[in-house]
Nucleic acid binder design. Sequence first.
DNA 1: ATTTTTGCAAACAGTTTGCATATCT
DNA 2: AGATATGCAAACTGTTTGCAAAAAT
Lengths: 135, 135
Amino acid sequence: MDFDEFIEILKGINIKITPARLAILSIFDKAEKHLSIDEIYMMAKKDVPNLGIATTYRTVKLLCDAGIIEKHNFEDCETLYEKKTVKNHSHIIDMESKEVEEFTSEKIKKAILEIAQDLGYDLVNYRLELYCHKK
Amino acid sequence: MDFDEFIEILKGINIKITPARLAILSIFDKAEKHLSIDEIYMMAKKDVPNLGIATTYRTVKLLCDAGIIEKHNFEDCETLYEKKTVKNHSHIIDMESKEVEEFTSEKIKKAILEIAQDLGYDLVNYRLELYCHKK
DNA sequence: ATTTTTGCAAACAGTTTGCATATCT
DNA sequence: AGATATGCAAACTGTTTGCAAAAAT
């Protein structure tokens, strides 16, 4: 999904295109890593110097609700956000550097679906996080 | 692990046995579900009427550090605590009732270990949560 | 012109801390 | 007695909200 598609989504949900929103949107569009609110705020401020923290929170929430970005609460980390990918994926957190890597495993996914079924549930979503040391 | 063993652990780490600590300890010993700080506070207050919330937090933190209880931050839930079991387990969260059930799966565990290895990490711990609707 | 969005400051929830007093060993 | 733990209130962090002014449609 690219930048213009994002904007179409925003227009679709009756939302005005403003400099603050464009700035934050484009940060996520370019981001190579998971971002904290403060990082987003700092980066966006370069484009929109008088941006307020409240607007940052509001915009991030908006993008979450619109399904454009995703929120993560990893253990011992501040809340982080990333652009949502179609494929749902899991995370590996390097416990020293706090760096986050992503992966998917059909094998694990299948096993999880199975377990949920066995226990009498319909799986809606799951969260899998591996806390590791780099070898 | 039973109540007396808990107390031995506390003594072992040079910690005084006080009514507040006994009360909170025994709540976890009996608890059949995951507990929020407020629930712990309310329950413990029955035994120790002038208990303060600060002591509740301090004691809960103490028990976490001692490895007696475990902290969970499930999505859209308040922070919850449970007595730590030797076996590490995963959680199924019923998205309507917010009830939490536990399970273990060697199959999943194995697959997870494998993945971590493949990606060049040593697995220290993992967190797996299934968000579901009850069938 | 109308509606939505913004920045600011104040409010808020959950948690932690400083301190003088009380409790444990 | 000496060391630790407690309750209280104040501080603090991360986040949300009310409002009047500003900007988008």
